[in-house]
């Protein structure tokens, strides 16, 4: 029995050009392909950027929705993933800005604990409270962005500069500071960088 053409196309996967064309025409198959091919990577990057799995899920969902809405205007100057990541970064910055403004209500704090389903998952807890999460959380947003773009997204210096709209020198300076800060913040027993932090090294 013959399969519908769209299903056959989706099974084979789209190349970047087909995906861009599909997004411009807001083809549901292309949107599905976008989520399937980039969703997980984007979600992981969002988790590292904001340190919270539930927030990361919301951020990625909003990123994809914005991408679908602005798909017809996508000029294809960068790769689809870089474009998506740019949207995610903007949303993450807003998220961090909003969190800074958040005022904790004592009444809410005294309320009964949430049901088990609403607790963050084990991975979430690990990500937030783990050594890496804590160290990342201690960095400022710009330093965290540069670190993640460099070592998770595997971007070159000039690519990071272009992505963030800053100079190569600023990228290198932030990266240098972020690495030093991570080495300082990560406790010796969980430091996976082969040795203890630079301060520990200096003491020895």
């Amino acid at each position: 029995m013959l399969e519908p053409f769209s299903g056959w196309w989706h099974k084979r996967g789209m190349d970047e050009e087909q995906l861009v064309q599909g997004l411009r025409s807001q083809d549901p198959v292309a949107v599905q392909e976008l989520v399937v091919s980039h969703g997980d990577r984007l979600f992981r990057s969002a988790c590292l950027l904001c340190g919270d799995q539930a927030e990361a899920q919301d951020l990625v969902q909003e990123t994809l929705l914005q991408a679908v809405r602005s798909g017809p205007r996508f000029r294809g100057c960068s790769s689809v993933y870089t474009w998506l990541h740019g949207i995610l970064l903007n949303l993450t910055r807003h998220y961090h800005r909003d969190r800074k403004r958040m005022v904790y209500d004592e009444e809410l704090a005294r309320q009964e604990p949430a049901p088990p389903d609403e607790y963050p998952s084990r991975l979430d807890v690990e990500l937030i409270t783990g050594a890496l999460g804590e160290a990342l959380g201690g960095l400022s947003g710009p330093h965290r962005e540069v670190l993640i773009l460099r070592f998770y997204e595997d971007m070159k210096i000039h690519e990071i500069a272009s992505h963030l709209g800053i100079s190569n020198g600023t990228v290198k300076s932030r990266l240098h500071y972020a690495i030093a800060e991570m080495q300082r913040r990560l406790p010796c027993e969980t430091n996976l960088f082969g040795a203890c932090g630079t301060e520990e090294k200096a003491k020895r």
């Binding site: 989520v35 969703g39 997980d40 984007l42 979600f43 992981r44 988790c47 590292l48 799995q53 899920q57 990625v60 991975l123 690990e126 990500l127 783990g130 890496l132 670190l147 993640i148 460099r150 070592f151 998770y152 595997d154 690495i179 991570m182 996976l192 960088f193 082969g194």
Partner: peptide
């Protein structure tokens, strides 16, 4: 340093799925 960061980020997030 680059390898360590990259490995740590990958290991921490590889089980996460959208």
């Amino acid at each position: 340093i680059a390898q360590s960061f990259s490995d740590k980020f990958q290991r921490t997030t590889e089980s996460l799925h959208l």
